[in-house]
């Protein structure tokens, strides 16, 4: 058997495994989200007997879905922007300045990724109680998200700052460009993909984040993941959980594909690693 034949067999078997792994579960979720409550989908039927969008409409009108969507989609862009702004000076220092302890500083920036999320969530809540800010929940979640996902922002922006070419900066300076003009012509073009990638990755991480939103936000603030968690636990209704799963997963897959395109030239390991 040649290598090509072997690859073909491996390929087909792998696609089969992936069908079981991805296609079947997602098809089941789509079908469950379409089950009409007038007739239940029992085990003896291959497909749901009555199909309708009732569950989608019902979830939209009669659950906290709307407020969860608003909360998630206001929180995430704010966290992305805040994280980017806070990460910029540090990334500039790490990417363009030589100083003793730079490697150590780079390592320390990864700290939020090593401490388990639930520990951060619980003792951050405790801290909020200690300093009397426990009613400041939306701000607290925003602050925590911006800082916890800053490792991604710092890593990406450090690489972007490293890629700014010194001769461009020097040329701009020789031509008499002001600080702002130098930033615009020499830095910005090299930083742009990094800025987009940072905004996108923190956005996605924040939309998906569960521990902080669940512990710090409960019970007042509902995001999509905490709503899904509730739908899977205390009020488990399978079609509703299916609707929520699809609402959480579909936009993120599209955003991730855009991110992948943005980062194709960059190191892929920078953009991954969510749990």
């Amino acid at each position: 058997m040649t290598i090509e034949q072997l690859n073909k067999i491996l390929l087909i078997s792998l696609l089969l495994v992936c069908a079981i792994w991805l296609i079947i579960p997602f098809t089941m979720a789509v079908l469950w989200s379409l089950v009409d409550p007038s007739e239940p989908w029992t085990a003896d039927k291959v497909l749901p007997p009555v199909i309708s969008l009732y569950r989608w409409v019902d979830m939209w009108e009669n659950s906290s879905l709307k407020s969860a969507l608003i909360a998630s989609y206001t929180l995430a862009p704010s966290a992305a922007l805040l994280s980017l702004l806070l990460a910029m000076p540090t990334s500039f220092a790490l990417g363009r300045l030589e100083f003793p302890g730079r490697e150590l500083a780079k390592m320390l920036c990864l700290l939020p990724l090593v401490v388990p999320a639930f520990i951060t969530a619980i003792f951050f809540t405790s801290l909020l109680y200690q300093v009397g800010l426990s009613s400041w929940r939306p701000g607290a979640i925003l602050f925590a998200h911006a800082i916890l996902f800053m490792p991604f922002a710092i890593r990406i922006m450090t690489v972007s700052f490293e890629q700014v070419r010194q001769d461009h900066i020097d040329a701009a300076r020789n031509l008499g460009a002001s600080h702002w003009a130098r930033f615009r012509v020499a830095y910005l073009p090299a930083l742009k993909p990094g800025i987009f990638a940072t905004l996108l990755i923190v956005f996605i991480q924040s939309i998906e984040e569960f521990a902080i939103a669940f512990i710090v936000g409960s019970p007042d603030i509902v995001t999509i993941p905490t709503l899904l968690y509730a739908a899977l636990g205390q009020d488990y209704v399978r079609p509703n959980a299916a609707v929520l799963s699809l609402i959480l997963v579909v936009p993120n897959v599209i955003l991730m594909l855009i991110l992948e395109r943005l980062l194709r030239s960059a190191n892929p390991t920078l953009s991954s690693g969510k749990g």
């Binding site: 702004l85 806070l86 990460a87 910029m88 000076p89 540090t90 990334s91 500039f92 220092a93 300045l97 100083f99 500083a105 320390l108 920036c109 700290l111 939020p112 401490v115 520990i119 951060t120 619980i122 003792f123 951050f124 405790s126 801290l127 200690q130 925590a144 800082i147 916890l148 800053m150 490792p151 710092i154």
Partner: peptide
Amino acid sequence: RRGLLIIGLLTPGLGLILALIGTVVYIA
């Protein structure tokens, strides 16, 4: 001056990370 500049640049990013994670671990 340069040392202060670098510390100033690191404060909003790395500084906040260390402050938050440090406080969380300390409180725990």
